[in-house]
């Protein structure tokens, strides 16, 4: 791992599904402590891009680097990483999913300690202490022994965020974290994410929450048809984008939510 390297670097990423080119040459760098929001209409390829970062989708061509180290491919050659090497690379990142994907057979506390104990080899005691602190951070201290099914969507997503943080990841990837939530539950999840941004966590967030992206991001990236067509600071992006397409997208968003 190289301290000065970007936390995430994507080089010329291409991906197609069933003959359709979903990603057509994505280049992106995310520096330490940055919060980058990825916007774009449905089907633009933004979730696929995020899922290529931790190799849940294997790119057709292009390269992903986490802290300067190549993801998914052995150094010094084009050979795919072994299962174990890939898992070790993935453990440097964490992901929060649209549909939460908590493990239903485990309690809230166990969901948070599972990967530290069984992936990173942390002692049960240490993992428990850390999980207790993280659950307090996301406001769920009273839910240690609950099972996920008994929680609201917002609570589930906050557990998922605690589970991600428990990996001490270099970057947290958020894949539309509030899209499956009732509107009244969105706020509690965004509040947690906002506090993470303030604490300096590196985050890549695929989202449709424009206000949130504007308030919290250091940078906003707009993807259209598998390509990045605009990268800008949030103020510029939302008020004065150079891209006609972005202005059109934002205009439609304003008219539908006004």
């Amino acid at each position: 791992m190289n301290k000065s390297a970007p936390v995430v670097e994507i080089r010329d990423l291409h991906k197609h599904f069933a003959g359709i080119e979903v990603l057509r040459g994505i280049n992106l760098k995310v520096e330490r402590g940055q919060t980058v929001s990825i916007l774009g209409s449905s089907g633009s390829g933004k979730s696929t891009m995020l899922r290529c970062i931790n190799w849940l989708e294997v790119p057709d061509t292009g390269e992903i680097y986490i802290g300067g180290d190549r993801m998914g491919v052995k150094s010094g050659g084009g050979k795919a990483m072994s299962n174990r090497e890939l898992a070790a690379m993935r453990a440097r990142t964490a992901m929060v999913f649209q549909s939460f994907n908590l493990w239903p057979h485990l309690t809230v506390l166990q969901n948070v300690t599972e990967a530290p104990i069984h992936v990173m080899g942390v002692s049960r005691k240490e993992a428990n202490d850390q999980a207790v602190a993280l659950l307090e951070k996301v406001g769920l201290s009273h839910k240690h022994d609950a099972y996920p099914w008994s929680l609201s969507g917002g609570q589930r997503q906050r557990v998922a965020i605690a589970r991600a943080l428990a990996m001490n990841p270099q970057v947290i990837l958020f894949d539309e974290p509030t899209s499956a939530l009732d509107p009244e539950l969105v706020g509690e999840v965004l509040a947690v994410m906002r506090s993470l941004a303030e604490d300096g966590f590196t985050m890549v967030i695929v989202t449709h929450e424009m206000e949130f992206a504007r308030a919290v991001s250091n940078e906003v990236v707009f993807i259209e048809k598998g390509q990045i067509i605009e990268r800008a600071a949030p103020e510029k992006f939302f008020t004065n984008s150079d891209s006609e397409r972005v202005r059109q997208f934002l205009g439609r968003y304003r008219t539908t939510t006004a």
Binding site: R90, N101, V119, A164
Partner: peptide, 15 residues
């Protein structure tokens, strides 16, 4: 659901 395995992979689990 596919997300069960995906969440495990994303958190560094081996198969």
């Amino acid at each position: 659901p596919a997300g069960q395995a995906e969440a495990a992979y994303a958190h560094g689990f081996v198969n």
